[in-house]
Amino acid sequence: MKAIVVEHAGAPDVLQIRTLPRPQPRPGWVLIQVKAFGLNRSEMFTRQGHSPSVKFPRVLGIECVGIVEAAPDTNLHAGQTVAAVMGEMGRAYDGGYAEYTLVPASHVIPLQTTLPWELLAAIPETYLTAWGSLFDAMEVQAGQSLVVRGGTSSVGMAAITLAKDKGLQVLATTRTEAKANALRENGADDVVIDTGQIADEVKRRVPGGVNGLLELIGTVTLLDSLQAVAPKGIVCFTGLLGNAWVIHEFEPMAAIPSTVKLTQYSSDTVSAANSTQALQQIVDGVAAGRYRVNIDRVFHFNDIVEAHRYMEENRAKGKLVVVVD
Results as ranks from 00 to 15, higher is better:
L183M: 05
E185K: 15
D165H: 14
T129P: 09
V155H: 07
D165P: 00
G196H: 04
N186W: 01
E139L: 11
E185A: 14
V191K: 01
D189Y: 11
I160V: 13
I193W: 03
P124A: 06
F135L: 11
R149V: 02
I198M: 08
G132R: 06
D194S: 13
T173H: 00
Q144T: 07
L162F: 12
L128A: 13
G150Y: 07
L162G: 09
A130W: 03
L168K: 03
T126R: 01
D165K: 12
T129Y: 09
T195Y: 09
R149A: 14
G196L: 08
A137E: 15
R175F: 00
A199F: 00
G196K: 07
D165G: 03
L146Q: 04
L168M: 15
L183C: 05
V140M: 14
D189M: 11
Q141M: 14
D194M: 03
V191M: 02
K179E: 04
A163I: 06
A159W: 11
E139P: 00
L128W: 08
S133V: 07
V147A: 12
A163H: 05
A182Y: 13
A137T: 14
S153W: 08
G143N: 07
I160A: 07
T152F: 00
M157C: 04
G187Y: 09
A182P: 02
S145N: 10
L120N: 05
L146E: 12
G150A: 10
G143A: 07
D194R: 01
T161A: 15
A188D: 08
W131C: 03
A142Y: 09
S145E: 05
A142L: 05
T129H: 14
R149K: 08
T161V: 02
L171V: 10
G132W: 02
V140D: 06
A158I: 04
T152K: 10
K166F: 03
A137V: 01
Q141T: 10
M157Y: 04
S133A: 15
I198R: 11
I198W: 01
G167E: 09
L146R: 06
L183F: 00
W131S: 08
T173C: 03
G143R: 03
Q169T: 15
L171R: 05
S145D: 09
L171W: 13
L162T: 09
G132I: 11
T174A: 09
L134P: 12
A130K: 07
P124L: 05
L171M: 15
Q169N: 08
R184F: 00
R184T: 12
Q141G: 03
Y127T: 02
G156T: 10
R184S: 11
S133C: 12
V140G: 02
G151K: 11
V170E: 08
A142I: 04
D136S: 13
A182V: 10
A178Y: 04
T195G: 13
Q169W: 10
S133I: 05
T195R: 11
G132S: 10
Q144K: 11
V170C: 12
A172G: 09
K179F: 01
E125Y: 06
G143W: 06
